Computed example of a mutant assay.
Amino acid sequence: MQKTLPVDGFRLAYDRTGSGPVVVLLHGWPGDRTDYREVVARLSSSAEVVVPDLRGFGESDKHPADPASQYDADAQARSVVGLIEELGLGQAVLGGYDIGSRIAQTVARTRPDLVRALVISPPLPGVGDRILGAQAQREFWYQSFHQLDLAERLIDGKPEGVRAYLRHFWSHWSGPDFELTVEHLDHLVSMYAEPGAFTAAIGWYRGGAGAVARSLAERAPRPEDRLAVPTTVLWPELDPLFPRAWADRIDEFFADAELRHVDGVGHFTPLECPAEFAEALTDAVRPGDHRA
């Protein structure tokens, strides 16, 4: 593990392995950089893979800060840009799921010169007010809960509370054939249970970057303003947060997007379908590929 120079006072912890075309992988909530261990194992012989903990997660810095300015998508993207520039990575393929997907899209939108291609899973734009439907609201309750001081009073710094909370999401959001290992859960609890760590990790939601706020605020851009970076979307079959019907507007937001359905898996694509995730990343960096 290494750490970057600070951006806005935050240093990112990261792992760097392999050689070849550069891939940067961005994790989700409630995870950390170890979410990609199975993907990295498949890529490190043919690519240089850099996997950071995002601001407020894992072994990266966690500071009391205004969430809207220091933990939202723009702030997280600034740290990822700082990582790419500090390491001299040039143009990288960015992979991301959950909040890592939003952050990868933000980097591609603000610094397309640093992004060769995207490989992402939901969330994606195009949901709109469908997120206010009854079924969706039964799933997205936690984003409102994270706005309350009660969330940190009940969970922050309390290992058993953290364990129960994380286990709920890893069990409920995953497909029927996936079970988080005890070892991985123990690791995540050790990261999220340090005093202040849980509060830092939900800074994303407190800063207004959660799916509910983003979906209600989004507007389809003009065709010439669509995200031009080549993008591969891996959309799971069994993600309870983002049903496949919500993939119907991707072309309104992306100028060059390929949709790949991933059957039998839920929300945690890097761990539930690492072979498919690694294959999409390999396709994005392969010389002569239509996305190279």
Rank of each mutant, 00 (worst) to 15 (best):
W173M: 07
G126Y: 02
A136F: 03
R153V: 14
L132I: 05
W141C: 05
I131T: 11
S171T: 15
P176K: 02
L87N: 03
Q137I: 11
L124Y: 03
Q147P: 00
G95T: 02
T106S: 06
I155F: 15
E86T: 10
P123T: 14
H172I: 12
Y142I: 14
D113G: 08
R153A: 14
V127R: 00
P112F: 12
L114S: 06
G157T: 06
I131H: 10
E152K: 09
G128F: 09
V93D: 10
I131M: 08
L94A: 04
A104S: 13
D113P: 15
Q105K: 10
R109T: 14
F178R: 09
L154C: 12
R102H: 07
V182A: 11
Q147H: 02
V93K: 08
Y97T: 07
A151D: 08
P159E: 15
Q143R: 11
A151F: 05
S101H: 01
T110W: 08
P123V: 12
L132W: 06
H172W: 15
G133M: 01
V107F: 04
L124I: 07
R167I: 02
V107G: 02
R153I: 12
A134C: 12
V119R: 13
P122R: 14
I99A: 02
G88A: 15
V162K: 10
R167M: 01
P123C: 14
L166W: 07
L118N: 12
A117E: 13
P123W: 03
L124V: 09
F145D: 06
T106L: 04
D149I: 09
I155Y: 14
